[in-house]
């Protein structure tokens, strides 16, 4: 089956213009992802650029993650307390919060914040490099722009988003502790012990894996949209916007799929 991947063969449409373009888009995204896997583990690695980009990811999202994580911890605890109280099960509060935050909320909230903050900025940055021919300029100086720009950024998001997720969970539990502490005199250590009492290694492991997948998604989507920006400055805005929308959408899908898979593992 011939898809209209190359502009030279697109005179006749297989289905219709829109449908063909949709499939050709998917094909392009697929090839882009394959290229990443081919180039991610070969020299040169540009370690310094990976570190630079990791700092960028951290700096851009840290304040918002701290604030959001803390508030979620406080609010979630406050809201859960009455329903647990009606069962007389307030002692379960820390472990309930622990499960909710470490397994679900921390990674998800971090991924959503980073889709907005990091995904859009990668999309805009690479998009503007594309439309001002800076990417071509690298290529004609015999520098592989995919390696230097895409591979480094995707590594950075894959490294940083799991770390930020754990940080977000930590801050969330801190917020929760502040709320718990205002009601009863639990020590911080005890609270954390309780919170982690029902969390297994598999939980933590799958949570980190999930964050790596989220990080990969945010990085590759931002880069893909940026690399394929067209039509001048308007294209740059569009690339940033589409990067956010698409990566958020994919993050939700992945969340559902990974939770399912983790549950299967638990049951066998």
């Amino acid at each position: 089956m011939q898809l209209s991947g190359s502009p030279n063969t697109s005179k006749k449409y297989l289905f219709s213009k829109g449908v063909d373009e949709f499939f050709s888009d998917i094909n392009k995204a697929y090839l882009f992802t394959i290229t990443f896997f081919k180039q991610a583990l070969t020299r040169p690695f540009h370690f310094r650029e990976i570190i630079n980009q990791s700092f960028e990811v951290g700096l851009k999202s840290l304040s918002l993650i701290t604030l959001t994580g803390f508030i979620i911890g406080v609010v979630f605890t406050k809201q859960s307390r009455p329903s647990l109280e009606s069962f007389g099960a307030t002692s379960w509060l820390p472990s309930l919060i622990g499960i909710a935050i470490v397994k679900a909320l921390g990674p998800l909230v971090t991924a959503l914040i980073c889709s907005g903050k990091v995904g859009s900025s990668i999309g805009a940055e690479l998009g503007s490099m594309k439309v001002t021919e800076q990417i071509d300029a690298m290529e004609v100086s015999a520098i592989n722009p995919f390696k230097y720009l895409v591979v480094t950024r995707v590594w950075a998001t894959m490294i940083m988003i799991p770390i930020l997720s754990l940080y977000c969970s930590f801050v969330g539990l801190l917020g929760s502790y502040v709320n718990v502490h205002s009601e009863e005199a639990t020590s911080f250590i005890n609270f954390y012990k309780n919170a982690f009492s029902t969390i297994t290694f598999t939980d933590l492991f799958s949570s980190v894996i999930k964050s790596i997948v989220f990080g990969f998604t945010i990085g590759i989507v931002g880069c893909y949209k940026g690399f394929h920006a067209t039509q001048g400055t308007r294209g740059v805005g569009r690339a940033a916007n589409q990067a956010v929308v698409l990566s958020m959408f994919l993050v939700f899908i992945e969340e559902i799929v990974i939770v399912q898979i983790a549950n299967w593992f638990r049951n066998y």
Partner: peptide
């Protein structure tokens, strides 16, 4: 490509 220099229409400096 190392033996060819390319000067871009809008300079394409890395901003």
């Amino acid at each position: 490509r190392l033996r060819i220099g390319f000067s871009f229409q809008n300079s394409a400096l890395y901003d």
